[in-house]
Each structure stands twice: as structure tokens, then as C-alpha cells.
């Protein structure tokens, strides 16, 4: 008795018997036809998987290069309060950078969220057609400005101005970084928030106006609450972008690894620590692994904020049946 051919799964275990009957029946000619006419679906699927593969590579390599830090400093060492990789003894506490990133990001969002939501409300609800198009193009252009240009602008123009205005010894502070980051996050937040407001069905607005509400009352009490989850999604995505921003922050934040709540002091963020120090470390050293561990922290923040934002935005779409 012949055993049925068994398909090998990816993990090497045998799957259910492979159904070869159609091919046997069709014979060699049929097989060639099938190859000729049906090659496209699996090939395109394989090519489409390249983004997944890229994501997998990122996860694998960042984690792999970071893992030795657990052996060398331990988790408590990595989440310590002192970062001094070149001192003796060297210390690799990441908290100053986590605090720096948090401070700069929160301050940037305090600036960018109100401005972004307001700009979104203007574009979606108030502006006449032509102004809407102009404002959207301006936001798109602002979003396209390279981050090194923002950093350069902050370094040459904003930092000296703040230095004079606040009488500081250096203009490169958390405040300067926050302002620049706020401007950078503005187009992201504004255009996503505008999407959210536009997704609210017109019947909501009409019902509100029919009850005698003004357009502003409608925006404030009807459109904004109805778009709430989309707006949250926009804010979270803006946050993710701000945390991950590198060049601009590197150039204007002053890069002192200290834990502070003062915006007028220099701070070092997760991204700027990696960019600043990776060039000076030997591959495979503890310092090198510690920098990759900072990358892990960044990657986790980015993936979580991205996932949350998608979920909130999807919730809005489901709610309004689109």
C-alpha cells in the first residue's frame, strides 16, 4: 500500500495529506498550465510579505544586539539613574534618557495638540473650500521638511533667541527641543485630526444646527465628542513621532544626560543618545549593547503608540460605519 504524500509544514512536522489529485488528473500538461497561469498569486504574496520581513528583521536584530546588556548590567542596572558609559566604573542607567524623552515629548504635545486640533477644526469645519486646500498643502509641506532642517533652524535661530530671552548660558535646552518638536508634530496631528472630524457624518451637524446651536457650539459639543477616538488616535500618533524624532532633538536639546523637570535645562533623549554615542563605541562593547537597549525601549514605545493609534482610529471608523 502506498502511503499518501505528506506536506511538510514550515516547522518540519507533517501536515495533513497533500491533495495531489487535481494535478495527477491534469497530467503534465495541466501542471504546466497551472504553473503558467497561477504563479502570480503566491509570487505577489511573497513579495508583499517584504514589509513583514523587514519588521521581523528590525525586531530580531535590535533585540539580539540589546540582549547582552541583561547579562552585563542586569535590568536594574539598565533602569538606573546614572548614564556615564565612559566613566570608571561605567554606568548604563537609561532613566535620564527616558526622562529626557518624556519631558521633551510632553512639552511638545502641550504645544502641538491644541494647535493641531484647532487647525483641524478650522480646515474641516470653518474654512471655505479654497482656503481648505491651501491650508492642507501648507501642512503637507511642513510635514515634508527634513528633520535636520528643523534642527538647524532650531540651532541657529530659535536657540540663540531663547538664550537671550531667558538669560541662559546656552540656548540648547529641553524648551528649544520641545518647541521644535511641537512644530514638527503639528502637521501629523492636524491632518489626522482633520480626517477624524471629516469622518463624522453630516447628519450630526445638521441635527445640532436644527436644534438652534451655532456652528461653534456644534463643533464643540457635537463634532469633537463624536470624533473623540479619532482625535485621541491623532494625538497618540503625534506622540509616537515626537518620541522617535532624532536629528532635530539631537541638535537643539543640549544632550546632558540628567533627570530634570526644568525645561530650561539641557537634556539627552533616547534617540539623541543613540545618534550621539553610537559612532564612538566599539562594536560588541557593553556601551554598544546599552545603546541598542535604548533602541529597544524606543521600538517598544513606537510600536505600542502606533498600535494604540490605529485602534482608536479604527474605532472611529467602525462607529460611523465606514
Amino acid at each position: 500500500m502506498r502511503r499518501p504524500a505528506r506536506a511538510l509544514r514550515d516547522d518540519g512536522t507533517a501536515g495533513p495529506p497533500l491533495d495531489l489529485r487535481p494535478i495527477r488528473k491534469a497530467g503534465l500538461r495541466g501542471l504546466i498550465t497551472i504553473l503558467k497561469e497561477r504563479w502570480d498569486r503566491p509570487v505577489f504574496l511573497a513579495l508583499a510579505s517584504v514589509s513583514l520581513i523587514a519588521l521581523g528583521l528590525i525586531l530580531f536584530f535590535i533585540f539580539r544586539e540589546a540582549a547582552p546588556i541583561l547579562r552585563e548590567t542586569g535590568l536594574s542596572g539598565f533602569f538606573g539613574t546614572h548614564w556615564n558609559p565612559t566613566g570608571s566604573p561605567a554606568s548604563y542607567g537609561a532613566l535620564p534618557m527616558i526622562a529626557g524623552s518624556a519631558l521633551v515629548t510632553v512639552a511638545a504635545l502641550v504645544l502641538a495638540i491644541p494647535l493641531g486640533f484647532a487647525a483641524a477644526a478650522f480646515i474641516a469645519e470653518v474654512a471655505p473650500r479654497w482656503m481648505k486646500d491651501v491650508a492642507k498643502s501648507i501642512l503637507e509641506l511642513l510635514a515634508g521638511v527634513p528633520s535636520v532642517i528643523y534642527g538647524f533652524f532650531g540651532l541657529m535661530i530659535v536657540a540663540p533667541a531663547f538664550q537671550r530671552a531667558f538669560g541662559l548660558s546656552t540656548g540648547r535646552t529641553a524648551l528649544t527641543a520641545s518647541v521644535i518638536l511641537g512644530i514638527m508634530a503639528l502637521p501629523t496631528i492636524a491632518s489626522l485630526a482633520e480626517d477624524a472630524l471629516t469622518a463624522v457624518p453630516n447628519s450630526y451637524r445638521e441635527a445640532s444646527m436644527a436644534l438652534g446651536a451655532s456652528r461653534w457650539q456644534t463643533i464643540r459639543r457635537v463634532t469633537f465628542p463624536a470624533a473623540f477616538s479619532g482625535l485621541i488616535g491623532a494625538a497618540i500618533l503625534g506622540m509616537g513621532r515626537a518620541v522617535g524624532e532624532t536629528m532635530a532633538v539631537l541638535m537643539v536639546a543640549g544632550n546632558a544626560p540628567q533627570i530634570t523637570a526644568s525645561l530650561l535645562r539641557p537634556v539627552r533623549t533616547l534617540t539623541s543618545a543613540i545618534a550621539l554615542e553610537m559612532g564612538e563605541t566599539a562594536m560588541g562593547s557593553t556601551h554598544y549593547h546599552a545603546l541598542f537597549a535604548l533602541g529597544v525601549v524606543l521600538l517598544i514605545i513606537a510600536l505600542v503608540t502606533n498600535g494604540l493609534a490605529e485602534w482608536f482610529r479604527g474605532r472611529l471608523a467602525r462607529k460611523h460605519g465606514r
Partner: peptide, 13 residues
């Protein structure tokens, strides 16, 4: 997710 990965992490990869 790939679109949301910070550019410096691409540098690390």
C-alpha cells in the same frame, strides 16, 4: 508598524 518605526531604529538595524 514599519511606517511608525523611528528613523534612528532603521539606522540601528
Amino acid at each position: 508598524s514599519l511606517a511608525g518605526v523611528p528613523s534612528i531604529v532603521f539606522g540601528l538595524l
